[in-house]
Nucleic acid binder design. Structure first.
Lengths: 223, 223
DNA sequence: CGTATCGGATACGGATCTGTATCCGATACG
DNA sequence: CGTATCGGATACAGATCCGTATCCGATACG
């Protein structure tokens, strides 16, 4: 009884290639037309395949959508993790809050597409409790990451938060999403990082207190 | 040939009735299925008409969508205006911030539908610059209302804001929308007013200073 | 070199949906 | 009481789109 699970013998090399292209085309198309507005046909066309290829790789349009969401969700988490790591290597005198914010709130085309996609997924989830659970789970992971980042941030600032970090992460996310939306609607009226840069520092300050001068800095001990 | 513009003589009584029902059915349907997902046919069905009635009252599905948005957008402004007025009649010792917040962040079914609709409209606007202008204009009116409300709020608190009220209104909106989204995705994990109630008071405090005890309670504070 | 198998293309049936063009009943008005 | 006009229904033609069933070429492997 060897683990002969799913080891095909024929020509089994192109599959990931194809799925990848389909996913990419799907991202473009969903971003342009929205979930319902995007037809499977157009997605396949853009990817350079026919519908046969699609149904050979995904069961339904929704499955494709979920796969796409998972994929990019993961990339967001990664990006945030990088931000956390980068924080450690920041010069001691830099303003860590601003550093993180400007890093996080760049709005390139990818970010724009991702916003459209994830917002549409949120709408989808509000209507479908099952999808809502999946989304909540992902948001939870993301939020944990944000909370960790905030923890380190306070640490560096020599302050101790007086509120639940998870809840503060919720707020931060809300601000980020909300202001991203506004800056996408009025690209030349509102810089995407403006709200966060303006209000988060004083807020962070307001919901934390100066740490009783215990516990020295762990990682980098230079002045 | 004087200005005989649109003065029909025949049976001209039912029209507003019909449009109203169509609009209502459209709100339901858009909320359930989304813009693209909702078919004109279903909307008419729910309203108790056929497609003929629709095309007699609207030029296209998008026109219907716009009309619906305008209608409800206006109702939101009204609601906020009421909140401002109600503020004036609050007992002197009440916490005005909390009072306003709980009033604004009730999430009934109507609010839910409105969120779905306006968010979808936002997505639509991000893709269509023309729609974006319309949305920006409405958001502007709304924001002015919010800014006025904030102004009165600070006034009552005996504080003077140190930041631009318009920008602060942007932030408030962002928080409201963002946290509304989160509470709709996880209805039993996050109360819709929790983020606002938790963080806005300390933030408002942080971005304002105690007023130099001059100038009694007039009607409105200038810079 | 033959062949089993996999990836993807083609072909097809069926379901919607959209607009328009036309028709009918009801009402305001002379 | 007759009739012009309006509101809305019906009928129709065209356009997608979806999902499946089937077919074909290519490759890994014996």
């Amino acid at each position: 009884m060897p683990g002969r699970v799913t080891l095909p013998k024929g020509p089994t090399k192109r599959r990931p290639q194809t799925t990848a292209r389909l996913l990419e085309a799907a991202l473009d198309t969903f971003a342009e037309r929205g979930f319902h507005g995007a037809s499977i046909e157009e997605i396949c066309e853009r990817a350079g395949y026919t519908r046969g290829a699609f149904y050979s790789n995904f069961r339904t349009k929704e499955a494709l959508f979920l796969a796409l969401f998972d994929l990019h969700a993961q990339s967001v988490v990664d990006r945030l993790t990088q931000a956390v790591d980068a924080l450690a290597e920041l010069p001691e005198d830099a303003d860590p809050v601003r550093a993180v914010l400007t890093r996080v709130s760049t709005v390139d085309e990818a970010e724009r597409r991702w916003y459209l996609l994830s917002t549409e997924f949120t709408l989808h989830a509000i209507r479908r409790p099952e999808a809502a659970r999946a989304l909540a789970e992902h948001d939870g992971r993301l939020r944990a990451e944000v909370a960790g980042l905030l923890g380190r941030l306070f640490d560096r600032l020599g302050r101790r938060p007086t509120v639940d970090l998870d809840t503060l992460a919720r707020l931060t996310t809300a601000v980020h999403e909300g202001s991203l939306a506004q800056s996408l609607v009025e690209p030349d009226r509102l810089a995407p990082e403006e709200l966060a840069v303006t209000f988060l520092p004083p807020l962070f300050d307001a919901v934390s207190e100066k740490r009783r001068t215990r516990r020295a800095r762990g990682s980098r001990g230079e002045t």
